[in-house]
Design a protein around this nucleic acid. Structure first.
Length: 290
DNA sequence: CACGAGACCTGTTCGC
DNA sequence: TGCGAACAGGTCTCGT
């Protein structure tokens, strides 16, 4: 039995990593059926229509928009948000469903695409795309128009449209503390708790700084820092910590996140943990002053 | 508009 | 060892 496991978690680099690993395994496969094991996982449409509409569609591409996984089908789009504990796996073979499996999509095996030659010669083995999610926060949409789900999102931080000037303008259009603002997906789409802390430290900005006080120079630094930490995260296949561990290794390169009491990589001062907007927040008290 | 608290959920780790 | 508290990568809604 082949298991294609992923870094099951939430921020942009992790979702990008998952999209890249799933793409070759899924493109060209046909959906035979869908089994929903936790009803609330399906955000839209109704479970009945979801099952009915997804059946028979062919997977054309796998990509990402912000933290949404975007699976383009022949006649519609499957959008998946992993939230806190979601994970996507391609499973081959007939193992029993696991405890946290919330949605199981049965795929027909295309003989031209056998992922492991010599295995599964007859194409009789089942292949499944499984959405597992211990905390049940994750959501899945099946829709004709991607924008019905993603229209509220701000700019993609790695796109050409996201410029230092744009960031500066958006920061000055608001009067909010930097950390919650960067986590706000309508302001910028893709950052989560880890990469926000990392970017603010790299830019030497305090998470409580008010957005309209940021200078052009600081906005430029923040812009560079955001792109830098996201690219690094992708290069390292995302971050994996605690019990939701999978393949990434960016956790071995954190500057401040989850490093309370450890030395700042820039100046050696002990990292502090505070709570901002109910989220654990990590700062170097020396590098990041108000 | 900005912000805090509470919800939604389960599992692991911490502190006594 | 046991047990409740605290905490977790996200986002939504409500009240101030």
């Amino acid at each position: 039995m082949l298991l294609l496991e992923n870094a099951g978690m939430p921020e942009l680099p992790e979702v990008e990593t998952i999209a890249r690993s799933l793409r070759p395994a899924l493109i060209g496969r046909r959906i035979e059926s869908a089994e929903i094991r936790w009803a609330r996982t399906i955000a839209a449409p109704s479970i009945r229509r979801f099952k009915q509409q997804i059946k028979g569609q062919v997977i054309r591409d796998v990509g990402r928009r912000a933290k949404f996984l975007h699976i383009r089908l022949s006649a519609s789009h499957l959008l998946i948000h992993l939230r806190m504990s979601g994970d996507l796996q391609v499973r081959e073979g007939k193992a029993r469903p696991e405890k946290h499996d919330r949605l199981i999509i049965v795929l027909s095996h295309s003989p031209l695409q056998a992922s492991s030659p010599g295995w599964d010669k007859g194409g009789s083995e089942l292949t499944r795309l499984v959405f597992s999610d211990a905390r049940k926060f994750g959501r899945v949409w099946l829709t004709d128009r991607v924008e019905t789900v993603t229209s509220h999102l701000g700019p993609e931080p790695l796109s050409a449209a996201f410029t230092p000037q744009l960031l500066y303008d958006r920061l000055h259009a608001r009067r909010r503390r930097l950390k919650p603002l960067l986590l706000d997906q309508t302001f910028l789409a893709g950052l989560g708790n880890i990469y926000t802390d990392e970017a603010l430290h790299l830019a030497k900005l305090h998470p409580l700084r008010s957005s309209e006080t940021i200078s052009r120079r600081q906005a430029q630094n923040l812009h560079g820092a955001i792109r830098s930490v996201l690219k690094q995260g992708i290069r390292r296949n995302g971050a994996s910590i605690d019990w939701v561990y999978r393949g990434g290794e960016f956790q071995n390169h954190f500057r401040v996140y989850d490093r309370r009491g450890e030395p700042c990589p820039a100046c050696g001062t002990a990292i502090k943990r505070l709570v901002v907007g109910q989220r654990g927040t990590h700062v170097c008290p020396r590098c990041q002053r108000m």
